[in-house]
Design a protein around this nucleic acid. Structure first.
Ligand SMILES: Nc1ccn([C@H]2C[C@H](O)[C@@H](COP(=O)(O)OP(=O)(O)OP(=O)(O)O)O2)c(=O)n1
Ligand SMILES: [Mn+2]
Ligand SMILES: [Mn+2]
Length: 652
DNA sequence: CAGGGGTGAT
DNA sequence: ATCACCC
């Protein structure tokens, strides 16, 4: 095993987080550290807003505070406030059933998610202002890994007198020996502080769970329901897992898995805990079997993964019936108008467009959706950014083509849903990028992560094989799709998987255009090309796995010093740990600690690469904005702050 | 298997 | 492109 591989692999591993397992005899992973009572575990927070959509409506209209309130989407009550819940109204109840339970129920329409989405990002942003390691789940939940913050606090300001804020699972709050769990106790104080901030700054109440993993934090956050928080001590892991009344209550076990497990005769959590792993693996595969059985034991090592800005924006509408092309086009226009507005405000450039439909069929084989997607030509994507009014008709036109790929309009059709989605969202860095951007000190943007993942967890000598394998897989199963992509304009290739993108970027740099009739995938399989690619991607992997210092759990800022602070929107991308007294020749765009561990030949490569790129970086990109007069019909409002990676996390 | 969203794996 | 998961 090459040294550099060991480094990278090590960083891929999670911290030891083996949770206390009360159950007997099963092949749970061995607990790693063994010894210490509190020391090596993570401290993870989970926040969940109370009756989220209803609460947003109550903030907008305080008169709704004291009445039973439901939020209605079409004919279902998607959620309701706690006044309504006392009448027996539940989430996802039909309007008629809800009105039966509570005739005075006040309903507000909630099909438009704008206000909920905006509030949602304000919450995430406020949490991130305290600690950037925040992962969103849906619109109303956030995980936060505060391990390093807690460790730092205890190190700097050791206290003899720890105590918990809020509930402690299975315990009388007062009587807990908090000093035995200093890290969880501190975690509960932080959770309380953050919930207080959410309330004072945004007027929102929430629940929180404090535990050593995402799974347990999430499970325990619901132990005391509105506007409260609960800490789970390790010794009660078995209890909270045991309190679950069905496998479906385990996050990660959904409808399908639940049904498959039922077919295997498994109903209770205990059944899954003790089921023969090999038998489980037959249904779910080795890795998945282990994962869900671990969940049943309360073991979850998955890291808190910062969410960043969304990967896709979509808009949809359901309806009784659309059966004419005219109606279809009108609906397409409406959806796209709204989506384009959101995309424009986002500022990134969409490079993929997808149209999804649902067809009517009575007593459906539980209705599935069908979709077609295509790349968005660059010139149209740019009009979306600039807000040109030309974007709408051109995308409608593309949408109609996709529609015809889905529906044979010479026969009758009956739609009940349409969805439009922009994905493959390119930030400025991604669009301006040439091959040079791969060597920048900035951590790779999410667009490029797939490539770095592969290369980082794989030895170089294995990479060739893997690459060929991946290519063959893509080619065999998606060849028709890729053929279609290649048929179109060359720019179209930008929408493909990052592996493809890297290739294309290089080609365009060299000024080579792809012959449009080139139906086969270009010479991807040629060893020379592959070898050329391995080196750069390997380098980016080195950067990738050294998180920017500001985004590591330890880095924090005081809530009270900078509440809702106006952070540099690029702040998260400025890595650079201060020098740790290592190799003097370390290039400034590489973490010195990593650099010093690399084998000499790789150090050489990085150094020479840096020297070559340095002058090049000074040269402004030749982004000649064609003369004065473009024939833009009209660009709306703000020039869409394109470069802001985190406009989603700004105050207001 | 309801509404209107999101994520990642295959 | 679909499936499975989450809210
Ligand atoms: N299938 C679902 C589940 C949830 N939501 C929306 C409505 C909820 O308001 C919000 C948050 O979901 P929760 O499950 O957290 O429910 P609430 O926040 O409404 O209530 P609670 O106080 O129980 O958390 O997500 C939705 O639209 N469709
Ligand atoms: Mn929730
Ligand atoms: Mn909630």
């Amino acid at each position: 095993c090459a040294p550099e591989l060991c480094i990278l692999l090590k960083m891929d591993e999670d911290e030891d987080d083996a949770d206390w397992d009360t159950s007997s005899g099963s092949s749970a992973p061995a607990s790693t550290g063994g010894g210490c009572s509190d020391g090596s575990r993570r401290v993870v927070l989970h926040f969940d807003l109370d009756c989220f959509y209803a609460q947003v409506e109550m903030v907008r209209n305080p008169a709704l505070r004291d009445v039973p309130l439901g939020v209605q989407q079409k004919y279902i009550v998607v959620t309701c406030n706690y006044v309504a819940r006392e009448y027996g109204v539940t989430k996802l109840m039909s309007v008629t059933a809800a009105k039966e339970k509570c005739p005075q129920l006040v309903l507000v329409k909630g099909e438009d998610l704008t206000h909920y989405r905006e509030t949602s990002y304000k919450v995430t942003e406020l949490l991130m202002s305290y600690c950037p390691l925040v992962e969103r789940l849906g619109f109303d939940e956030n995980f936060m890994d505060i391990t390093e913050i807690v460790n730092g606090k205890i190190r700097e300001a050791p206290v003899t007198d720890y105590c918990f804020s809020g509930h402690v699972y299975n315990c009388q709050a007062a009587g807990v020996r908090a000093s035995e769990y200093p890290r969880l106790a501190v975690g509960s104080q932080i959770a309380a502080e953050l919930r207080g901030a959410l309330h004072s700054r945004l007027g929102l109440t929430s629940c929180a769970g404090i535990a050593s993993s995402k799974l347990l934090a999430k499970l325990v956050s619901g132990a005391h329901k509105p506007n409260q928080q609960t800490t789970l001590l390790p010794k009660y892991t078995g209890d909270i897992i045991g309190s679950l009344t069905g496998l479906r209550q385990i996050p990660g076990i959904g409808y399908r898995t639940g049904e498959k497990l039922k077919a295997l005769g498994l109903l209770a959590v205990r059944d899954l805990q003790v089921f023969h792993l090999a038998a489980l693996a037959k249904e779910f595969g080795e890795a998945n079997a282990q994962r869900i059985q671990n969940l049943a034991h309360g073991i979850d090592e998955s890291p808190v993964t910062p969410s960043g800005p969304p990967q896709s924006l979509s808009d949809e509408d359901s309806f009784k019936e659309i059966s004419t092309v005219t109606e279809t086009v009108k609906k397409l226009e409406d959806l796209l108008t709204s989506l384009l507005e959101r995309m424009h405000k986002d500022g990134r450039q969409p490079s993929t467009f997808r149209l999804t439909i649902r067809r009517f069929s009575s007593t459906d084989r539980w209705f599935s959706r069908e979709s077609r997607q295509c790349p968005i030509p660059i010139h149209i994507g740019q009009k979306v950014i600039s807000g040109s009014s030309e974007a709408l008709p051109q995308l409608v036109s593309i949408g109609i083509k996709l529609f015809h790929k889905l529906i044979d309009t010479s026969a009758p059709f009956h739609l009940t849903l349409m969805n439009v989605c922009f994905s493959n969202l390119l930030s400025r860095r991604d669009t301006k990028g040439s091959i040079k951007s791969f060597f920048t000190a900035k951590s790779p943007s999410r667009q490029d992560k797939k490539v770095t993942r592969v290369s980082s967890s794989t030895a170089r000598n294995v990479f060739f094989f893997l690459f060929v394998f991946i290519y063959l897989f893509i080619y065999l199963f998606f060849s028709s799709l890729l053929d279609e992509i290649v048929q179109h304009k060359p720019s179209v290739l930008l929408e493909a998987v990052p592996i493809v993108r890297l290739k294309v970027v290089e080609r365009r740099h060299k000024g080579e255009m792809l012959p449009s009739q080139q139906k086969k995938i270009p010479d991807f399989l040629l060893p020379e090309h592959i070898q050329k690619e391995i080196i750069p991607t390997f380098h980016t992997a080195v950067f990738q796995h050294i998180p920017p210092v500001e985004s590591r759990p330890g880095a924090m800022c005081s809530l009270h010093d900078h509440p809702l602070s106006t952070r540099d929107t690029e702040g998260l991308n400025v890595p650079r740990p201060s020098s740790l007294g290592v190799n003097a020749a370390c290039p400034p765009n590489v973490d010195p600690r990593v650099f010093s561990e690399l084998p000499p030949d790789l150090q050489q490569e990085l150094l020479s690469e840096w020297k070559q790129q340095k002058p090049v970086l000074k040269i402004p990109s030749k982004k000649v904005v064609k003369g004065g007069s473009t024939k833009e019909k009209k660009t709306t409002g703000q020039p869409s702050q394109a470069n802001n990676l985190l406009k989603y996390f700004k105050p207001n």
